[in-house]
Design a binder for these strands. Structure first.
Length: 493
RNA sequence: GGUGCGGUAGCCAAGUGGUUAGGCAUCGGUUUGCAAAACCGACACACGUGGGUUCAAAUCCCAUCCGCACCUCCA
């Protein structure tokens, strides 16, 4: 039996027990990208949060069917293509490819289905026909509109009142200001598909209703997306689906908070303050982004700043280094007796490691509180480090840290963090930081070997001069018992 | 104007009425040839403000101030 979870439901605005329609199975639909530009670090938050959520559900024993769409026909795509004198389909495909590269870079698990609007046209048209037949929609001059007044629960997700809504697309043949397009009559030069109302294309919201139904069936357990989609997108999806397919449309609505700039404003394409995933991944490992997202609660706004990724990378290094110390320990004594012999720091690691799975799940089962789950891991890492200072830890400590090592594996499986061997992590960090700062590896290595030579002759002044020279290049030299290591400093000067 | 979310130490931040969450920064100490990392300690009587309920409030209630988002481009 999968573990019981509690999730915040936007519909009720409460954290409630999650009960899937079919015990043990979860159908999950997440709104994907509208492919008219690169994926930025705000999109990536939604992608990573739901990626980790899928991993966690599976770890907890649920059989998950995960669908994430591409919206590849849309006003914005057409507008962008016209600006550039490019075919909209070619432009959309280019950004689909770019997204796939970013998704791979971020280490996202592949959805079970990744439907595209252009490949779902018969289902979309069929749904519109049903809505017209049932009296929830009307055709006018080659377009089809959803009649909001035909659905008296409209507004239940976003708590908007129909009378309060401003109107857009006025004078296009709508009967009421709040009505929204299901099908847009083609204008010249736009991509279009034949239909009984004439050539045209789907409105923005209908595709998700149709594609969710195609791949997951009438009622879906969880629908996710960014908070900014609550209105109008998800509100309209509910109206379309509940009038045309099934009620309820969705059991639990999950919305992630938005990335904000330090000024408090959100990051948005329209504000021109975006950082692309691609450039973030050139300078930082994907796990640093992942940790940055997951060390906050998914529903909170998340401030972006220059320091966000360096700080997250520092935190990640801390975890990797603690794990490495534990991995390096040997010994095969009976753990409880050994803990008694080695003292309170050993006993603390043993106890924290053993308690970890319970504490971790308790935190994360409660509305996916990844921040609190990770806090427990940091607590454990500190205990490991403290214990590792003991003289006998390296030769005999392995049984003491065995449970702590299992904790790192648990977090890896749940969140996709700590998935690399430590040396691979550090060499990826080095490569990316060197590239980002434009540093020359050969030059650094020459300075390092010169310093090594000075140290063998105990020429300390020369060694220190070289250390300072390297420091100015942002290279930190570590004289470890196992040999000389070096790292690229993360923080700004 | 309408609908929501939020204000927790220098900064970010979790908190599900009852024992120092966590991270980052700065400053001391241990350690180190010098450093770094790590550990220990300080910053720390933290919860926007004013009332109320309670044996007990960051948490519940009322009022109030401030910030942000959404109200047909948005993850």
């Amino acid at each position: 039996m999968p573990a019981p979870l509690r999730l915040h439901n936007t519909l009720t605005r409460k954290v409630e027990e999650f009960v899937p329609l079919v015990p043990g199975k979860v159908s999950l639909y997440v709104c994907g990208m509208t492919v008219y530009d690169h994926c930025h670090v705000g999109h990536a938050r939604a992608m990573v949060v739901f990626d980790a959520f899928v991993r966690y559900l599976r770890l907890r024993g649920y059989e998950v069917t995960f669908v994430r769409n591409f919206t590849d026909v849309d006003d914005k795509i057409i507008a962008r293509a016209n600006e550039r004198g490019e075919d909209p389909n070619v432009l959309a495909q280019r950004y689909v490819d770019a997204f796939r590269a970013d998704a791979a870079g971020l280490g996202l698990v592949a959805p079970d289905h990744e439907p595209r609007v252009t490949e779902s046209m018969p289902e979309i048209i069929a749904l519109i026909v049903t809505l017209i037949d049932k009296g929830h929609a009307y055709a006018q001059d080659g377009s089809v509109w959803f009649s909001v007044s035909s659905y008296d629960e409209y507004g239940k997700l976003s708590h908007q009142k129909v009378e309060e809504l401003r109107s857009a697309d006025e004078a296009l043949g709508k009967r009421a200001p709040a009505d929204f397009a299901l099908w847009k009559a083609a204008k010249s030069g736009e991509p279009s598909w034949p239909s009984q109302w004439g050539p045209g294309r789907p409105g923005w919201h209908i595709e998700c209703s149709a594609m969710a139904n195609m791949h997951l069936g009438g009622t879906i357990d969880i629908h996710g997306g960014g908070l900014d989609l609550v209105f109008p997108h998800h509100e309209n999806e509910i109206a379309q689906s509940e009038c045309g397919i099934a009620r309820p449309y969705v059991g639990t609505w999950m919305h992630n908070g938005l990335l904000t700039m330090t000024s408090g404003q959100k990051m948005g394409k329209s504000l021109g303050n975006v950082i692309n995933v691609h450039s973030a991944l050139e300078a930082f490992p994907a796990e640093a982004l992942r940790l940055y997202y997951l060390h906050n609660h998914y529903r909170s706004p998340l401030p972006w700043s220059e320091d966000a990724l360096p700080e997250a990378l520092g935190m990640l290094s801390r975890l990797y280094d603690a794990r490495e110390k534990a991995e390096a320990m040997a010994g095969d004594d009976e753990p409880d007796a050994l803990a008694k012999e080695l003292g309170p720091d050993a006993a603390a690691v043993l106890e924290l490691g053993r308690a970890f799975p319970t504490k971790f799940h308790q935190a994360v089962d409660h509305d996916f509180n990844t921040a609190q789950g990770l806090a427990h891991l940091f607590e454990l890492a500190r205990a490991v480090n403290r214990f590792a200072n003991h003289k006998k830890a390296k030769s005999r400590g392995r049984p003491i840290v065995e449970a702590a090592l299992a904790a790192f594996i648990l977090v890896r499986d749940a969140f996709g963090l700590m998935a690399m061997p430590t040396h691979a992590f550090h060499s990826e960090v080095k490569a990316k930081r060197l590239a980002a700062l434009g540093l020359d590896r050969a030059h650094i290595e020459a300075l390092l070997s010169e310093r090594a030579a000075a140290r063998t002759t105990k020429d300390w002044p020369r060694a220190d001069t070289l250390r300072k020279e390297l420091e100015q290049l942002r290279i930190e030299v570590l004289d470890l018992p196992t040999g000389v290591e070096w790292r690229v400093r993360l923080t700004a000067d």
